[in-house]
Design a protein around this nucleic acid. Structure first.
Lengths: 212, 212
DNA sequence: GTCTATAACCGGATAGAC
DNA sequence: GTCTATCCGGTTATAGAC
């Protein structure tokens, strides 16, 4: 009957919605509690579905977690400051890039939770780390590297290694200050860090360039 | 009398030995399995004591973990490259410092496990992070900062922020390569990283003592 | 008296069934 | 959506052994 086909269409459309709905609830719970302390009961309740529905979409806890990580990684892929194609002279490009990168890393508390669980479970789920690296870290490194290579005046002999250093400084800041909560015992401001990074890269804020 | 005091001494001596024995076993299990997946049963078995003895020395799982972290942090405090008082000109001091720091960070697999669990559980046990920071990270930062401040020729306007950057680059390398196992997907050698760090700091490599 | 060995208690979690 | 089978882990209690 008509109601039958309508129902089928509605279900098909809702199928991906249900998966999304589950993943959103799961994300909340996993990021707040960590992998082991997250129960499927609570995921089902938070997502507003029954456990049967939950297990219909995801075969077990591990599969759910894997889908969650893949989703977060893809989300980051288009959200990070990795997609902007950079050009223009360093004096104009690097300071805002560093400041905005640092600010966005420092602000995103959901990302802090994600990083915490990624590192914490990296030994147990090595494949997930590959997903994360290839979707998030590697594109970021490549973007920075490409820009550094395009600016010979920066005099950077190894752009890839320098990209690791640059990103490393930003990530370490996020880790100590936000992910691990060391603001009080290791105080450091975003401004001081970015100013020192810019200084190390040899970017002059004025027009003079003093090279030997 | 004599036997009495002897017995008391022996017991007292054995008390700390037992605690040490338990902590060593606990360290093995916690670092390999993570906090939640570590069972007190297995800790007792690994340490070679009964569960009763285990609970006689440590009131519960959390207390055991706290003692373990405090012990590891103190161990690191005297083991890190933070205790050497540095001086001498940067061309001679910085390259070996960076290379050796990087090498020791990259080699110590027990430390990688420790870092993984510290970050993973940092939200649940924020006090332990303070222990770790004040015993390990802060002294390291201070040592680097003090040296950078003592060398005006490096032209570093903010030694503390620069110490964060320097340490951050090393720690990020250890995290991506070893802790999270990204060697294959984010390949980077210690030599390239340290060379680029040295280059960024503006140290001339004229004093290279290596043969290649 | 302290350590060992073992078992019991209790909550909770996965997974699946009604 | 509840209910249940099954299992596992933290913790405590009961044995006996040195």
């Amino acid at each position: 009957m008509a109601s039958d086909s309508e129902k089928t269409d509605a279900q098909r459309k809702r199928a991906s919605d249900k998966a999304e709905q589950i993943l959103q609830g799961a994300t909340q719970v996993f990021l707040a509690q960590g992998y082991d302390r997250t129960s499927m009961d609570r995921v089902a309740k938070t997502a507003g579905v029954s456990k049967q529905t939950l297990y219909a979409y995801f075969s077990d806890k591990q599969a759910l977690f894997e889908a969650l990580v893949a989703r977060m990684a893809k989300q980051r892929f288009q959200g990070a400051f990795a997609d902007e194609s950079l050009d223009g002279n360093p004096d104009a490009v690097l300071p805002p890039l560093i400041q905005q990168g640092l600010a966005s890393l420092a602000q995103d508390t959901e990302y802090h939770d994600f990083i915490r669980i990624m590192i914490g479970e990296s030994k147990r789920f090595p494949d997930l780390i590959q997903t994360f690296f290839s979707n998030v870290t590697l594109p970021t490194i490549e973007t920075i590297r490409h820009y550094l290579e395009s600016q010979p005046e920066l005099d950077i002999p190894d752009a890839e290694a320098t990209a690791h250093i640059l990103l490393g400084a930003l990530v370490f800041y996020m880790l100590t200050q936000e992910v691990m909560g060391g603001r009080d015992i290791l105080p450091m401001s975003q401004d001081r860090l970015s100013a020192s990074l810019i200084h190390l890269l040899g970017v002059s804020k004025s027009s003079s360039s003093e090279n030997d």
